[in-house]
């Protein structure tokens, strides 16, 4: 069957978007395995000591952070939706809001760390705080990396690089951001609540 020019163009873009999304899923799979190492160690050490290593953490800030990240995950989903519809202004606004929420998350994290340091609690204090700093530290690194890339994409979006057929980077960013949020969703009860 003879394909019209832009139909083959759209087919080619969809094929490339499939390829990139599959690559993103694989990368997220390897990130899952990265946090598997930490979760396995935490579960083992905690259950072998029958929970005696658990120290109290600031539950309020933890819950606040969870709400912030879930909201940013929501706004990111709307940004991806906007980019698929070709709505440049919507994309710029929603992704900007997501970026701000990410920075707020890091600020709350900073406050929590400052609280710990002021009380003289460091990773070397005890095994639970070692895991606390390990988990939240590497999660924060992933958030920072995500914010850097999102910032670059925000400027490109403002410049109008993305349209209805070419919005793969936004979609990849969406997948990555949802993943970072999911890691926190599992991390929050493990460290703060139980």
């Amino acid at each position: 069957m003879e394909m019209t020019a832009n139909a083959t163009e759209a087919a080619f873009h969809r094929k490339r978007a499939d390829m990139r999304r599959f690559g993103m899923w694989l990368f997220l799979g390897s990130e899952v395995m990265f946090f598997t190492g930490f979760f396995a160690a935490y579960i083992v050490i905690r259950s072998a000591s029958a929970g005696s290593i658990v120290q109290p953490l600031n539950k309020a800030l933890g819950t606040l952070n969870t709400v912030i990240l879930i909201t940013s995950s929501f706004t990111m989903a709307l940004a991806v939706l906007a980019s698929k519809k070709g709505d440049r202004k919507g994309l710029v606004n929603w992704m900007g809001l997501t970026w701000i929420l990410g920075v707020v998350f890091l600020c709350v994290k900073g406050v929590e760390y400052a609280q710990h340091f002021s009380e003289g609690i460091y990773p070397s204090t005890d095994i639970f705080h070692a895991f606390y700093f390990l988990f939240t530290g590497f999660h924060a690194l992933h958030v920072i990396a995500g914010l850097v890339v999102m910032g670059v994409l925000w400027f490109r979006a403002r410049r109008g690089d993305f349209n209805e057929t070419y919005n793969d980077p936004i979609e990849m960013m969406g997948l990555y951001w949802h993943f970072v949020d999911l890691v926190w969703i599992f991390l929050y009860p493990a460290l703060y609540l139980l």
Partner: peptide, 25 residues
Amino acid sequence: QCLATPMLAAGASMLIFDRVFHTSF
């Protein structure tokens, strides 16, 4: 490579934490 190497990254991160920040995983 894709699914096993991250476990080494996790272990190496914990070992670096132990050596640099004196945690004791």
